[in-house]
Design a protein around this nucleic acid. Structure first.
Lengths: 331, 331
DNA sequence: ATAATAAATGTAAGCGGTTACATTTTGACG
DNA sequence: CGTCAAAATGTAACCGCTTACATTTATTAT
């Protein structure tokens, strides 16, 4: 198979210069209707399609951005960051942008740099290391954070309305008559954790509900740790009648612990998760959870990035995506 | 910020020709030790790193491959295909290859072609449409299938040992004394479904266990459908004592149905899932499932692809990844 | 009709590497 | 030393596209 046809072949066949062919494809309005048609015909006949590499070379831009998942041990398998990735991919796939996906860990291990990967902007998902952020900034590479925020850094961040989500969950529980509400917090990334935790405490205070130090427990975000922590939480006297969990995995742990202790959901204990992971509907009873539109977050990341990459002088620092409480059987 | 230093800058600073600089980076053994050192020094001083775009342009290769998820409505959020993606990414990120991720749907909608995206090879995950496969082949683009196989097409396929997995599950159930074993099959992709189904039937026959037509039911692969189908399965008389499910989501549906019917797991009913999704440990009781090493499958896809892209004349058609039964409380 | 202006097209020089081929340097050997 | 092959390096064309600038063609005003 001979090599692909170039702009030169089209030029010859259509009888116009290469410049005109180029214009026909990159800026059709600048060539006369009749000429344009001739070019299209020739291109069609030759099955020509512009060579993106050569184009990048000529215009000195790659339109390539990266999405790095910055979470200890997490990969694209992490449902939350995969959701964001989905949004990014979906948006990027319908533009001329290209996306490089990796993890912070792989990125550093492979010694990659924005330059070596021809990257023009980077979206960092989760708690990125400061050194990484600084490196990109030093190289003049625009950075967008998602699901994370660093005060004072003036970096655009796309985040979910954490406080709002907690409020929705709490109001739901309170409206169901719960007064002794505990929280099982996990070691999420510092920004997200503090938002959720602070909102919880603030609302308890605001509603003048009793909150003792032991009513909030911390655990690792895996089922085992959550289950163990939940056991302690549920052996408090008087026992909490509802538990707000920092995420769904933790909530699953609470459900298991409750089951072991012979507590019925939601009669004896109401459980609310956070993130609305896909497995919420697989649990029995199905888990009430705060839904986060990850895909939307991903889309917004790309929007912010294109703004940064475009002429827009400065981009708003915060982009907040609303949450929605999905009420199911567990509460 | 001025533009990045080019090979020309390094050439001047180090006092050698651009050709030598180029060789120093792409084939160090071809330049004398002393010269090499000079070049490295100059490069270091200028903070030079080769421009990948220009290189691609010159050598007429992009080293870029694509991974298309070919499953109705599925995205990178589908845990199984995300697992494969993880393996691919991991492998690709530590080579000079680049990866483009998309779905079959997005790919077609955006009118992308291998040429327009500068793709040199494509990995198709799941049941790809024949038209898509043909298109790539017509363009001389190497194709690797994963989790799918088309007889007679002579395309390298990376698949899990489905029959083996079913056997592991069945032997486990049989060793636990089960004789009335039902199967709840879902509309998976045709290759995978038939492998799992045929293996199930074969083993039942082989062990001379009773199998009536109604003992195998088909359902859509979502919890709701599975739960409904499971209800029917569990109302058969005599009732099956074990159910082999085509995947974990279906298994979750079975667990819910059993629970509603007041059946205890595993005493009254044993349930075995397939794929070993992350939520298996979140269910209560935890779900026994056939583990598939998706990441390994992804790695193997890249290996096959590099072989195809390299000189290797013909690549083995089948690459089979072993499965492992993870026994948990549900059986 | 003619000049002035706008629109369309053409010419050719890059973009930053690679590499065939030419030239110079090196080193082994008679 | 001189010869000659091998090794190292240099020269310059090329990869396929864009675009500044030059030139031609069309349009409008006078």
């Amino acid at each position: 198979m001979s090599s692909a046809p170039s702009i030169y072949d089209v030029s010859r066949l259509s009888g116009v210069s290469t410049a005109t062919v180029s214009r026909t494809f990159s800026c059709p309005s600048r060539v006369k209707e009749a000429t344009r048609r001739k070019v299209y015909e020739a291109a069609e006949a030759l099955n020509y399609s512009p060579n993106a590499i050569a184009r990048s070379m000529a215009i000195q831009r790659t339109d390539k951005i990266a999405y790095l998942i910055c979470k200890q041990g997490a990969t694209i398998l992490d449902e939350f960051y995969a959701g964001i990735c989905d949004g990014i991919l979906h948006t990027v796939n319908r533009t001329d942008y290209q996306l490089l996906v990796s993890t912070e860990e792989d990125w550093k291990l492979s010694g990659a740099t924005a330059q070596s990967k021809s990257i023009e902007g980077v979206i960092l998902g989760g708690k990125a290391e400061m050194s990484l952020i600084s490196e990109f900034r030093a190289q003049g590479i625009p950075v967008v954070l998602v699901n994370y925020f660093v005060p004072g850094l003036e970096l655009p961040s796309v985040v979910a309305d954490e406080a709002g989500g907690v409020r929705q969950a709490m109001e739901h529980l309170i409206s169901r008559g719960h007064k002794r509400i505990a929280m099982l917090a996990g070691r999420l990334n510092p920004y997200v954790l503090s938002e959720r935790y602070n909102a919880f405490v603030a609302i308890m205070k605001e509603r003048e509900l009793p909150l003792k130090p032991n009513d909030v427990k911390m655990c690792d975000p895996d089922v085992k740790s959550a289950e163990a922590a939940a056991r302690e939480l549920l052996s408090l006297a008087p026992r909490p009648t509802a538990v707000l969990c920092a995420n769904d995995v933790i909530a699953a742990g609470v459900c298991k612990a409750a089951h072991r202790l012979g507590l019925r959901l939601p009669e004896d204990l109401a459980v609310v998760g956070y993130d609305d992971a896909s497995f919420c509907t697989m649990l029995d009873p199905e888990l009430t959870s705060v839904h986060i539109d990850c895909r939307r977050m991903g889309e917004l990341c790309v929007e912010r990035m294109t703004e940064l990459l475009g002429e827009k002088p400065d981009v708003s620092e915060f982009t907040v995506v609303p949450t929605e409480l999905i009420v199911r059987r567990s509460s």
